[in-house]
């Protein structure tokens, strides 16, 4: 214990002194590899989630007019999907495709794309903020996720919704998850339409999640299956999403 303390203090001292000479970096590189340091720094994510939820409640993300839309909406992440089942549906115009909603629900659903288009719709022109720093404004349309959840009736244990996607990113399945606060938010929709046209492949055809108020990587594309779960542990890497597992991005991406 004492030894650890001394070492830590020495490390800190060295880091501090080295910093003056512009050599802070190797210190920081080493520090973040220390689980205790990393855990402390990452716990800021809880502060972000708690303060944003407390101050923001269910506030709506800003919506824009048509004149304010980006002339070109950049596509990011997977721009095409190689999965053979997806390719078959794609060639059929997704006519026989359906979205699965299962897990901790009273009534599992398989909703065809045409049914998603005929459910009550919400259209919103919102700003998509990528974690990298860029933004694009586009128009999204689809049924509210809440509508489908009401149809399937969540079991009381359900706390998160996991969005399983058809694409592999760098060889691993893409997925994302949100909690119930975001799932029932009025602007959380399953968009099949972007800028007045059916989604193209680069932007996540046939269906993508829009979870406004969070960064772009939460907006899962190529969604094929939604799973209601009690915990995120045990799903892929257990941190609730592709980038959370593979890139150490925050699960709460409101900031």
């Amino acid at each position: 214990m004492t030894l650890t303390l001394i070492l830590t203090r020495r490390t800190l001292l060295r880091t501090g002194l080295a910093g003056a000479g512009g050599l802070l970096l190797p210190g920081c590189d080493r520090l973040i590899d220390n689980p205790a340091v990393r855990g402390t720094l990452e716990s800021a994510e809880d502060l972000h989630r708690i303060t944003q939820r407390a101050l923001g409640g269910s506030a709506l993300a800003r919506e824009y007019g048509e004149a304010e839309m980006s002339p070109v909406f950049r596509a990011n992440g997977s721009r095409e999907v190689s999965d053979p089942v997806y390719r078959r549906h794609f060639s059929q115009g997704f006519a026989n495709w359906s979205l699965a909603l299962e897990g901790l629900v009273e009534r599992p659903l398989a909703v065809p794309l045409h049914a998603l288009r005929t459910l009550p719709q919400r259209a919103q022109i919102t700003r998509h903020d990528c974690v990298e720093g860029w933004s694009a404004i586009g128009r999204w349309q689809g049924p509210r996720l809440a509508t489908l959840l009401d149809m399937a009736r969540l079991k009381p244990q359900a706390r998160f919704l996991v969005f399983h996607c058809a694409d592999l990113y760098h060889g691993r399945p893409y997925y994302e998850s949100i909690d119930l606060a975001d799932a029932f938010h009025p602007q959380t929709i399953l968009a099949w339409s972007m800028n007045g046209r059916p989604l193209d492949e680069a932007h996540g055809a046939p269906l993508r999640l829009r979870v406004e108020r969070q960064l772009g990587y939460k907006h899962a594309k190529f969604v094929t299956r939604i799973e209601a779960v009690a915990t995120l542990a045990g799903i892929h890497g257990g941190r609730g999403g592709y980038w959370e597992d593979n890139g150490a991005y925050a699960w709460y991406a409101g900031i």
Partner: peptide, 16 residues
């Protein structure tokens, strides 16, 4: 920070 490219770790430091 960090010296190797990592947006995720840069954000962890920055936002803390």
């Amino acid at each position: 920070i960090p010296s190797r490219y990592s947006l995720a770790e840069g954000r962890i430091w920055h936002l803390a």
